[in-house]
Amino acid sequence: MPESAHSLSIPSAAQHLGKVRRFVEKHAREARLGEEAIAHIKMAVDEACANIIEHAYDDARQKISVLVRVDSERFTVCIRDQGRSFHPESWSKPNLFRIAESRRGGGLGVQIMRSLMDQVEYSTQGDTNEVRLTKFRCGEPGRNGGKTA
């Protein structure tokens, strides 16, 4: 399968999340991924973008870029921002009962990404943060149980 890359830029506002999901779904379908994989990628990308909107940026005019890369082995989505960085080492698996007791929802996005994708990697270069979400196309050769790098 030939390699391909596709990009989308959205303002940092939740009203654009549907557009991101449709963008990712379109390219995942073109890459002939299965329905379950498509659903997982859509949701993981939605969660990544929603986290940026909520935690990294304060201004809806700031931009989030979404880059899809497809090759014979993997479907990768890189989501970049220039806001506050996320530190995965400070993340711990949320406890549903504690969240409910606190009467505050939230805190599930990272767990969803890790559960649905084969790889979730965070990096920062200069002022740009990137979260890279990878789904292996078949056989999942590098599957690591969704560990966060």
Binding site: L17, R21, K42, M43, D46, E47, A50, L96, I99, A100, E101, R103, R104, G105, G106, G107, L108, G109, I112
Partner: peptide, 16 residues
């Protein structure tokens, strides 16, 4: 479709 934002609302209200 439901994302974590929707799931979180159920969690915020269930105890009450």
């Amino acid at each position: 479709y439901i994302s974590s934002a929707g799931l979180g609302v159920f969690m915020a209200y269930i105890e009450e």
